[in-house]
Amino acid sequence: MKTMKTAIILSLALASSLPIARAAEDRAFPVAPVKMVVPYPPGGTVDIVARLLAQAMAGRLGQPVTVDNKAGAGTLIGADFVAKSKPDGYTLLVAPNTTLTVAPNIYKKIPFRMEQLDPIGFIASNQFVITVNAKSPYASLQDLLDASRKDPERISYGSFGTGTITHLAGELMNQTAAVHMLHVPYKGAAPALTDLLGNNISMMFDAVPAAAIQVKSGSIRALAVTGKERSALLPNVLTVAEAGLPNYRVDGWIALVAPTGTPKHVRETLSKTLDAVSVDPVFQRQLRDSGLDPAVDRKVNVNAFIAEESQRFHRVAERAKLSLD
């Protein structure tokens, strides 16, 4: 009888401890590999950033961090996958501003609500550069704009595709400079560059890291970079503001995003880990070697910044009457 009573007491004690054990287990993060979804094919700027970040975060989280490329629909396929994933911190999105500030203002229908995505913080930023064929008669941005004013639609610009950040970069330039350059969309930077080299388009907006190689080889000419400051990779190239359009600026940036509803302690772990990685000299050097700038200002309110940028591109899209199904 005494043995039975002891067994009952022990079983009750074990049962009462299970909720505590489960609660502790639920709060432990991470206890399994973390997946970062990239909404582009492998090899591009966002993919490079994601792989650098995954490697850096894995060492701090103590779990493998993998990269999963889910490209298509102007980044919406990958974003949709993450937005509808279980909000447990194990599925994250490495999102460019095309996903968070351009797509919502271009597409009539998005397969998820933007409120289903919760930005954790910025990872990196990059600039775009306006380039022409090395044999082009246009030696400056003003030459290009003057030619467009004299003969509307004579000047064409290539972008990474309709509804991408480089598309809106061109539309913003049309509006800022009061010109009418013709938009020619491509499925990425490579085919646009091919047509630029073949003189089939007048100019294109390209990411600085990729364009810098061609500029230094002498096959294309850089007229201006679109950011606030000159690029370290192209230090002799003027900003668009320096080239005569003081109110023009377009930056590319990349953020780490979780599904909305991710537990607070998980989100805090991811945020602190991203903060630590962002100030790590090795990670910063890796980004700069890839032509990117580290997003080290952790005081920026991510949601407020994205909302402001989204409103800016909403105005651009509305004036240009841009709308995609």
Rank of each mutant, 00 (worst) to 15 (best):
A13M: 10
I213Y: 11
P87K: 00
L238M: 12
K272S: 14
L223R: 00
E268P: 06
P119V: 00
S17Q: 15
L196Q: 02
G291W: 08
L196S: 02
T194A: 12
A28I: 12
R319Y: 10
H183R: 07
F283M: 02
Q116Y: 03
D146A: 11
E308K: 14
G89R: 03
M203Q: 05
D80G: 15
E318D: 11
P41S: 04
S231E: 03
V179M: 07
L223A: 00
P119I: 00
V237R: 01
A192V: 05
Q127T: 06
R22G: 14
P191E: 01
L193F: 12
Q284A: 07
V225M: 02
S16T: 09
K35P: 04
L141P: 13
V225N: 01
T226P: 08
A124N: 03
V49G: 07
A73S: 12
G188Q: 04
A13H: 04
V102G: 00
M4L: 11
E153Y: 10
A103C: 06
V237N: 01
A147Y: 09
S156T: 10
F160Y: 13
V279T: 09
D275H: 14
F160R: 09
A32I: 05
E171H: 14
Q284W: 05
V215Q: 01
S202P: 05
D143Q: 06
A71Q: 07
A24D: 14
T131W: 05
T269E: 13
N303Y: 07
V132I: 09
T269F: 10
Y90W: 13
D151F: 04
I213R: 14
E308L: 09
F313V: 02
P39L: 03
V257D: 04
I20P: 14
A192L: 07
R149M: 13
P235Q: 01
R298V: 07
P111C: 02
S290T: 09
V240D: 12
L223Y: 01
A276R: 13
I20H: 15
T269H: 09
K228M: 09
D80F: 13
N199K: 14
V102M: 02
T166Q: 11
V129E: 04
P30F: 04
A192I: 06
A307E: 12
F160H: 14
P119M: 00
H180V: 12
